Amino acid sequence: MEEYQYIRSLKLRREEISSFNRYPFHLPSIKTLDELAFHPKVTYFVGENGMGKSTLLEAIAIAAGFNPEGGSLNFNFTTFNSHSPLEKYIKLIKGVERPKDGFFLRAETFYNLATNIEELDREPGAGQKIIDSFGGVSLHEQSHGESFWATFVNRFRGNGIYLLDEPEAALSPLRQLSMLAHIHELVDQNSQFIIATHSPIIMAYPNAQIIELTEEGARETSLEETNHYSIMKQFFDNRDRLLHHLLNE
C-alpha cells in the first residue's frame, strides 16, 4: 500500500521565514514545526479552534496544486483571496506513484465551488457538463449537506489524494458514519486522505494517524486521548452532571 502514498511528509523551510511573530508563523503548530510524516491511508489534523488545522491543510493543498477555495486540480477561480502564504514555505515529499485523481473539499468555501461549476457549465461550447461528475443535480439546488455528500460520493473516484477540511460542518452524524465507510472503499482503491476535523466520528477510522495541534505544537495521539473524544464521552456518560456544572456556575 505504501507505494500509493502520494504525500509522504512535509518540511517547513524554517530558514526562509523572516519572523515567527506574524501570521501564520506565530501559530504554535507552525512555530514549532519542522517535519510531519503522513500515514499512507488516513491522517487527521485535530485541535481547538485557532490552532492552525485548516491553515496547515490549506497550505498542503495549494502546494499540491489545488485551488485555495477547493475543487480538483483543474479548478482555478478566486472569490476572495484570503489564504495564508504558508504554502510558499513548505516542501512536500511525494511518493513514487502519482495520483490519478484528487480533490480539496472544504466546507467553508463550498458555495463558491458550486457557483464556479455553474458558471463554467453555462459557457458556450463547454461540452460535457462538469456537474455530471457531481451527480448531475445543481449543487445549489440541494441542501448544503446533500450537495457536499453528492460531491464526496460522485466525484471521488479512487487512486487519488483527497484533502478534506472540516467535512462534519455539512454532515449529520449518520452521514459522517457513511463517510467513514466510503473513505474505506476509496482507501481500498489506493487513495490517501488528509483530513482536518473536530468530529470524533470522522476521526475514528481504524489505524489512522491523528496529529493533534496544541499550544505546545503538533503531537501524534490516539482517538481516546483527544479532547474532542474526552468531552463527548463526558457529556454522554453523565450529561446531567455536566450540564448542572455548566449552567449553575
Rank of each mutant, 00 (worst) to 15 (best):
L180W: 10
E168M: 10
I195M: 11
Y162D: 09
T197K: 08
I161M: 15
L177W: 09
I161R: 07
H182E: 11
A181V: 11
M179G: 08
A181L: 13
S178P: 00
V187I: 13
L174M: 13
G160I: 03
A169R: 03
E168L: 10
P173N: 09
S191Y: 06
A170H: 12
S191P: 07
S191I: 01
V187F: 00
D165Y: 09
L180K: 08
Y162F: 14
L180T: 06
T197G: 10
N190V: 00
P167C: 10
H182W: 13
S191L: 06
L163T: 04
F193Y: 00
E166P: 05
D188P: 01
L163Q: 11
M179D: 11
M179N: 07
H184G: 09
L164M: 14
P167W: 05
T197Q: 05
S191Q: 04
Y162A: 09
E168K: 03
H184R: 12
E166T: 06
L164E: 03
I195N: 09
L164N: 01
G160A: 10
I183V: 15
S178E: 15
L163Y: 05
A181Y: 12
I183C: 07
L163S: 11
D165S: 13
L180F: 09
E168Q: 12
P167M: 05
M179K: 01
D165R: 04
E185S: 14
I161Y: 12
S191H: 03
A169I: 12
H184C: 01
S178R: 15
E166F: 02
R175M: 14
I195H: 05
I183E: 07
Q189F: 02
F193T: 01
L186I: 02
E168P: 12
A170P: 04
I161W: 08
H184P: 00
E185T: 13
A169P: 00
A181N: 13
L180S: 10
S178K: 13
L171K: 02
S178D: 15
V187H: 00
A169T: 12
I194L: 11
L163W: 09
A170T: 11
N190F: 09
I194E: 05
Q189H: 08
E168N: 10
H198P: 03
Q189G: 01
F193L: 00
P167N: 08
A169G: 00
L174S: 13
A181I: 12
S178C: 10
Y162K: 04
H184A: 15
I161N: 04
H198E: 02
Q189R: 14
Q192I: 03
V187S: 04
S172T: 15
L171A: 07
R175E: 14
M179R: 01
Q189L: 13
V187L: 04
L180Q: 10
L177C: 09
P167K: 01
L186Q: 12
Q189Y: 04
E185L: 13
A196F: 00
A169Y: 07
L164H: 00
A181E: 15
I183G: 02
L163N: 10
R175P: 00
Q192S: 10
T197Y: 08
I183D: 02
S172V: 05
L186H: 02
H182P: 02
S172C: 05
D188R: 11
G160S: 09
Y162C: 10
L174A: 14
S178N: 14
H198C: 06
H198M: 06
A181K: 14
L163M: 07
